[in-house]
Structures are given as structure tokens and as C-alpha cells.
Design a protein around this nucleic acid. Structure first.
Lengths: 223, 223
DNA sequence: TGACATTAGTCACCAGTTGTGACTAATTCG
DNA sequence: CGAATTAGTCACAACTGGTGACTAATGTCA
């Protein structure tokens, strides 16, 4: 067996780091010299025996300059599609960066709106697409939207974030009613005046325990 | 680079194969001589460049004697927990076997009810647990329950399967109403008399297109 | 200064969905 | 025959979610 320190795993971890830029979802890409200046998702081949999530967090941290606000594994991919490393398999992660995070200076990283992603290695393209799907999917399972916002925010900002992530418009009254029922936020005593219009009250994320939502049977899959 | 034919991947694929046995979820374990007769999930180290799902299906096929009724990837695990192979990572899959599938003769495989699983390698235990969670989770996204039943079945049987998989009782009228709304089954002209009581009509799985269920906003996660 | 545009926040109604108990139907058993 | 058993349906009450219209508080500009 080779020397432990030098030994690298034979798989890569690839992270799709997302955030909101100008009311659009955007992904962080890097331009690596090793790849003839082509764009790609941040990735690495971890050392052995490191927990996968730790490695993924480190990759995100290095690319952003700060810790990611959220992280989840997508799964492993090993189709024939090519990957920058000649790795057998890649394990994809999705991650969120807080609103307004600039990529670290140096010019190697940049945000690209999802509607305008340049060419990246095919396997990474698949990871990115799955990542966006998983994110949408996790929206009603984890407080994803709050991770993107600053610690206090107006309800309109929160609603906009939900609309952005879900990709559809929500009705104001319905949104607030659902929020109320979920006991997820509490008002602060501050208000913010945003140019014209009535000032909005600021809220903070403050989840409280509740009965675990015993909903009925739903057979809603597209067969 | 080593010879291609002989080369094995440095990761394993581990499959949690589930079915219903006597109104309980059960998992298929095998006893391998290489592991001092301990029980474990079926697993293998695939050759390079094989699609993961294909390998997983082959593992299930070999363990069951027949093709699995359903298969889905859980994700990759690489915590410190031990695995029979000294592999860096394992990629877990869940799979379903049709109701009443006997394990192949030879005495190396057996079904164990989930309430009574013997000791298996820790990493596989984690895979099994995640698999059951994922299965429950996929219930309202894919026609999982139908895969376990024979091609025709009574609505009571279908309901029992749902109750088994979801782990909770359902009200008869609600269940049938939801089934109606989902256009998932159609009646055959056969009836089955099951001892005492009124005979039940047999149905078959026959999904039809419908509008893609535009449900409202739900903030239902346990924060 | 006062009408108006603009954004925040609330309300009440209606339509649809879901939980539930009670009902009818068809069979076996004694 | 009647009781027990299982299948299948119905109707009503309670709840949920979509929606338009309303009030509130601010800035803008004539």
C-alpha cells in the first residue's frame, strides 16, 4: 500500500455552489490553468478517509472565501461522460452561498446566471442540473431560503427568495398564511424604509417546535 | 496503468434489497464465506466504466434470481465506518423485490424483517437505514407500491402495501378517493373471493396522464 | 400642501380537499 | 335463516389554499 500522506482517492468531489444574483439563480465556476482556461465546477480529489461532506465544505470554502450556508450531497455519477480528472466516479454536492457573496478576488472564479452557463465538462453539467432539482426539492424540507438571506429580512424579501428558488410566483396572502402556520419567523422591532412605499417590518428566522404535520395520503407523482 | 480487464474500481456498490414478508418490510442479507460467515448486504466492486445503476441491478439480480422491481441510488458514504471490502467509499442503492420472491436456494441468502436485522458492517447499517427512509420518501413520487404487487390486485391489498411502506394506517375512503383522483389503476372484470366476506374486484396498474398537480405552498419541514 | 403612486400588511369569501363515521353489498359459517 | 366478515360507497364537517379587495404608511411631484 502506498504512503498514506501522498495517497489520493480515485474519485472526485464536485460542488455546485449556488446563490441569487440580481433575481436569478447563479452558479460559481472557476477557470483553472490545468484545464486550458476552461470553466468548471470547483472540485477536488480528497485524501482518503475524509468524510465527504467535510471535503465538499472545504471546496466551497476555498472557492467562496467564506463557509457555505448550506450543503447537501446529490449522489455519485459514473456514466461515460468525461470529467476533468480522469476519475472513475464523481460525487456531486449542492451548496448555497449567502446573498451577495462576491467570489474571491484573483479572477479565477465568477458567478454565472443559470440561464447563461458556459460550457463545462459534461459530467459536471449533469451534477449542476441535478443540484438545482435537489435544491427545489429540499425547499419544503429544510429552511433553505433563510440561509441565503441576511439574519434579518422583510417578508417581501423572503417571498422573493422563495419565488426565485421555486421558479414561480406566489400570492402574498397565501405565502404569509403558510409562514404563520409554520412558526418559522418572528418579528423584530425594527422597520426598514426602502425608498417609496410603506416601511416593512424586519423578521428573523426563529423556528419553533410544532406537531409534525400529519398530512393525508397524496398520490401526486407523474406516473 | 494496470491491465484494464483485471482492474477493479476502488469503491463498492452496496444494495439494500427490500420486500414485504408477512406484513413487514424485510431486507435480503447474504452470508459470505470471505467474511467469516457474517451477514452483510449484497455488494460488489464493479469494473471501471460501468454505469452505477447497471452494476447495482446486476447485484440485485444475482442475489434474487430475478430482476429487481425498482432501484434507486441513495448516495455515497465515506465516513470512518468499516466496510467488508477495505474500500474508500461505498455507493448505496435501495431496491425492491416483488412480493413473495424467495431468495435463491443455496442457503447463502435470507430475508430478515427490519425489526430483527442481525449485525452487519456499520457502513452497511447506515445504507440500510437511509434506504428505508428514501423508499418512504419516494412513495409519493413514484409508483413504488405497485412494483411489489402482482399484476392484478385488490384495492385492499394495495392499501395494505401502502400502509406497510408508509408505516401508518390509512382510512379506506380517503385512500380510494386519492387513488381515483390519481388515475393510477383500472378495474379488470375479475373478482376474487378470499374466504369469507364480499369478493373484491381485481385492479391493474394503468396510469393515465393528468395535469401535473399544481399544489400550493407548503412550509412543512421540521425546523 | 394635497393628490397619487408605491409598497406593506390584513381580511374575508369561496372553492376545493381531506378526515371520518355510517351506510349498503356480497359472501361464508353455523 | 341470522351473524360475522370483508368490499365498496356516501355524505357531511372541518380544514386548506387561491384570490381580490381592502387598509396603512411612506415618498413624489405638481
Amino acid at each position: 500500500m502506498p504512503d498514506r500522506r501522498a495517497r489520493r482517492a480515485s474519485y472526485t468531489i464536485d460542488v455546485a455552489i449556488l446563490t441569487a444574483v440580481k433575481n436569478q439563480l447563479a452558479v460559481l465556476l472557476r477557470r483553472s490553468p490545468e484545464l486550458r482556461e476552461k470553466w468548471s465546477l470547483p472540485w477536488d480529489t480528497p485524501g482518503v478517509d475524509e468524510p465527504l461532506a467535510t471535503v465538499a465544505a472545504k471546496i466551497a470554502q476555498d472557492s467562496l472565501g467564506i463557509a457555505p450556508a448550506w450543503l447537501d450531497q446529490i449522489g455519485a455519477v459514473a456514466d461515460g461522460r468525461r470529467h476533468p480528472a480522469e476519475s472513475e466516479i464523481s460525487i456531486g454536492f449542492v451548496s448555497l452561498a449567502p446573498l451577495g457573496t462576491p467570489p474571491p478576488v484573483g479572477g479565477n472564479h465568477a458567478w454565472f446566471p443559470l440561464s447563461d452557463v458556459p460550457q463545462i465538462p459534461p459530467r459536471q453539467r449533469a451534477i449542476l442540473d441535478s443540484g438545482v432539482l435537489l435544491l427545489r426539492y429540499r425547499m419544503d424540507q429544510a429552511p433553505v431560503a433563510f440561509r441565503l438571506l441576511p439574519s434579518t429580512f422583510t417578508l417581501s424579501e423572503l417571498q422573493q427568495m422563495y419565488e426565485l428558488l421555486l421558479g414561480k410566483k406566489l400570492h402574498k396572502a397565501s405565502f404569509r398564511r403558510a409562514l404563520q402556520a409554520a412558526y418559522l419567523v418572528e418579528p423584530t422591532d425594527e422597520w426598514r424604509s426602502e425608498g417609496r412605499g410603506r416601511p416593512a417590518q424586519l423578521y428573523r428566522y426563529a423556528p419553533r417546535k410544532r406537531r409534525p404535520a400529519q398530512r393525508g395520503i397524496r398520490l401526486d407523482f407523474v406516473a
